[in-house]
Design a binder for these strands. Sequence first.
DNA 1: GTATGAACACACTGTTCATAA
DNA 2: TTATGAACAGTGTGTTCATAC
Lengths: 123, 123
Amino acid sequence: MNERQRESTGFLLKQRAFLKVFLITEIEQGRSYGLQLRDILLTHFQAYGFKPHHSEIYHSLHELTEAGILRKREELEEGAKYKKLSIYTIEDEEKAKAYKKLVKADLDRCQGLINKALSHNYA
Amino acid sequence: MNERQRESTGFLLKQRAFLKVFLITEIEQGRSYGLQLRDILLTHFQAYGFKPHHSEIYHSLHELTEAGILRKREELEEGAKYKKLSIYTIEDEEKAKAYKKLVKADLDRCQGLINKALSHNYA
DNA sequence: GTATGAACACACTGTTCATAA
DNA sequence: TTATGAACAGTGTGTTCATAC
């Protein structure tokens, strides 16, 4: 989370924050695991050229877990083989909402910044 | 410049590119120098929390000059003291336009990406 | 104090490597 | 192959230092 990211030079949103709100949103709608979440991400954002590496997804999930927002549980998936999945669910709904709210403010700011750049430089 | 920035994971625009198009736009409207350009930048973008350090401005100006887009000329400013300024003007109008066009495509993409994030996560 | 620039340090992200089933 | 994770490496950016006037 790192509240000291305020008081930076404040350019655009960090990828990590972008990923975290996406992950929270998806997990709010049901249990899920790393690579599955990445697949969902790609269906939504690959059209915009965004295709983060799997390590970024895992790193984000780990940080959200350490922050007490998500809970991780390992499960054995029945199937042709026994595969161990790391299933994530929401641990603290309040913290999740608070974090999403924080990032929304930054997304709004970025939207303004980019719109301003477009109108200023391409009038 | 660096055309190989295509085929990255393509998150948001780099600050350097943002600064470069701003600098080109301002310099197209008249000769100017580093810290003056930074002041103009702040009047437009500080409201969005963007306040880049002066070294970033200089670095951007240097790169644009190396790329043959800008031309640098040192001048002595008359005043209470003789102060040496680095005045920039457009060196190659075509290259400047081409670069701005390139970055506009990325700005448009970012606009879409952010709008998508807002609608997806905050429906 | 203003102006320019370089050098250094760090944070973020991307690639590679390791392990398991 | 899918899945998870760690370790490493590189790039961009922020801070500090140096110089001049």
